[in-house]
């Protein structure tokens, strides 16, 4: 557990968050820029996972930081700054999806097809890195959306279950159950693939 993540960002602790927010509120010009640079990748890729279009994720990221700047004085440090930003981004991304309802239906259909017949297992090889990546991407996409989101927030964003529950508007226990089911499904696929590799 632990280790480097692909999305390389400077990770801030609660104290650094607080200092940064106080600097922004006191009018330090560069402070908000630092805040953007610190969290923009997390926000962008969170939005991208839901929206699947670079332009839409970019727009949602910009709106997220704009909104955060407007309401920063109301941020009470009840969660981490990162959780707060992800929550804003997901809400905006969901609104964005609602306005693109037809495409949302397509995404759901696509998900149903993938789940019925996960394509990853048919052509990837676990022996090379690219094969493993392809398999994992396809398997993650094959998870029900909530399980996928919990797995990604837990492993890639390293968020505690309590914060994940807050973001996804569910209890900590439900977040854990979703994580458990998501990992179990990934493991089932992984075991099948390993068995095939051995044959």
């Amino acid at each position: 557990m632990g280790g480097p993540t692909f999305i390389e960002e400077r990770r801030l602790g609660a104290d650094e968050d607080r200092i940064l927010v106080e600097e922004v509120l006191s009018g330090k010009v560069r402070a908000f820029e630092t805040l953007i640079r610190t969290y923009q990748k997390t926000v962008f890729f969170t939005a991208l996972r839901l929206l699947r279009k670079n332009e839409d994720a970019d727009e949602v990221t910009q709106q997220t930081f704009f909104k955060a700047h407007t309401h920063l004085s109301k941020f009470r440090f009840e969660s981490s700054l990162k959780t707060w930003l992800i929550t804003i981004a997901l809400n905006l991304a969901r609104n964005h999806l609602r306005s693109r309802r037809r495409e949302t239906v397509l995404i759901d259909e696509q998900w149903a097809e993938q789940w019925a017949d996960p394509k990853g297992e048919d052509f990837v090889s676990m022996t090379d890195e690219e094969g493993r990546r392809q398999w994992m991407r396809s398997s993650l996409e094959g998870l029900p959306p909530t399980q996928k989101e919990v797995v990604v927030l837990r492993i890639q964003e390293e968020l505690p279950f309590k914060e994940i529950g807050r973001i996804l508007e569910m209890s900590e226990g439900t977040a854990k159950v979703n994580f458990h089911h998501g990992m179990k499904r990934l493991k089932e696929g992984y075991e099948k693939l390993q068995k095939r590799e051995r044959q």
């Binding site: 280790g3 480097p4 993540t5 692909f6 999305i7 908000f32 820029e33 953007i36 640079r37 923009q40 990748k41 962008f44 890729f45 991208l48 699947r52 670079n54 970019d58 990221t61 910009q62 930081f65 704009f66 493993r132 990546r133 994992m136 991407r137 993650l140 797995v151 990604v152 492993i155 890639q156 990934l186």
Partner: peptide, 25 residues
């Protein structure tokens, strides 16, 4: 480990983050 090291589906061009920062500001 595979989930953690999974690269994003699309990797924006190198100047993307800089442009995005300026657009927000």
């Amino acid at each position: 480990g595979m989930v953690r090291e999974l690269p994003p589906e699309t990797v924006p061009p190198p100047d993307f983050w800089e442009r995005q920062t300026h657009a927000i500001l």
